[in-house]
Nucleic acid binder design. Structure first.
Lengths: 204, 204
DNA sequence: ACCTGAACACCGTTCAAGT
DNA sequence: ACCTGAACACCGTTCAAGT
């Protein structure tokens, strides 16, 4: 059997969908490719390197947004990142285990910071606000992709007397409407960013 | 050798500090306790159960905040959660691998939602805004605890021509001042929450 | 250049048997 | 009640040897 790097990457992403991140092993991957255990190591020098390539593959095209006012651009980039992570099982966890410096991730970071600089933020505020946006996208999406298990255990654990406030909000946590939940948090953050945009830099 | 549940938990947290989450194995833990591999399984039915107990142990006392205006209380809770996660190596990753329904985590969630309900938010907005705050704390702290490796690889990967905006902000990402970075994002989120507090509910 | 075969040094978990 | 000893079914990684 003869395989190339792209085939390994594609097979790894397919195996991710089938088995999930926790069951994704180099040995199962080799078997799926019809090859011996050691063979994939010629194409990726470690499992970590493969996971990084997978993470960046997920982000293909995420940074390609058109001309928009800064706040709509920030929102669009966040939404595109979320959709990209949702496209594969455990996509958000794969991405968060890796985080930065591969091509598509860099393009995303560059586009997001660019929108915030254009809004009039300092480089520092732009970088930090970009992180806040990305933290929300990734953390929200991780929870969204884990959600299946959560609700029953939580309902059983919350004592209305000991945790009255949590109990009052229990119908909304974890959210049965992840899409709205996502937008709510993103709107909050963009509203917060807007408060630090200097006056005289209106966006629309 | 005779051990009890508390000793296993304490030894696990010490091993976490020494070895880090990735090197924390049930076998190393047994060895540290001077006991055979199977022995810890009498006290915790799985590694996952042990990690959950560790996560909740980290959060001891986090919810114990005094009477404060709602926004100061939200800020205080977030800061206390961050400090609790920073207290042990990889604390944020341990917590994020587990997330909810143990006693100290429930107390934290209850206190945070309580502050937001008192601000005048609906249960839904309170629950969702609480999640946004917690996402920020956890994601920020994970990155803060990983930081050692990140900066050089990133500097090498950013091409000033291809990523001009990212390049302009490179001194701030990853942040050399995690404390300020944390407060910046938290302030943003609290400012965003303030925009959805109904009028006639001033807090100070 | 790219794969096989086989090994090394680990894992989490289970469970009969002991005390 | 709590631990030992030993096994089961896995891991990631390396590397001489083959083609």
């Amino acid at each position: 059997m003869r395989i190339n790097r792209d085939q390994v990457l594609a097979a790894a992403l397919d195996l991710l969908d089938e088995a999930g991140l926790d069951q994704l092993s180099m040995r199962r991957l080799a078997t799926a490719l019809g090859v011996q255990n050691g063979a994939t190591y010629w194409h990726f020098r470690s499992k970590q390197a493969l996971l990084e390539a997978m993470a960046d593959e997920l982000l293909a095209g995420v940074a390609d947004v058109g001309e928009l006012p800064w706040d709509a651009r920030v929102t669009e980039l966040a939404a595109r990142l979320r959709r990209a992570l949702l496209a594969r099982r455990d996509g958000a966890r794969v991405f968060s285990g890796v985080f930065f410096p591969l091509p598509n991730a860099l393009a995303y970071g560059n586009a997001l910071i660019g929108a915030l600089l254009e809004a009039g933020l300092s480089p520092k505020d732009a970088a930090w606000s970009a992180d806040t946006v990305t933290y929300h996208v990734v953390a929200h999406t991780i929870e969204e992709q884990l959600a299946p298990e959560a609700p029953d255990r939580l309902n059983a654990a919350v004592d209305p007397l000991r945790h009255p406030h949590l109990h009052a909000a229990l119908a909304h946590v974890p959210s049965p409407h992840p899409e709205e939940h996502f937008w709510h948090g993103l709107r909050l953050i963009v509203a917060g960013i807007r408060t630090e945009v200097p006056v005289g830099k209106p966006d629309h």
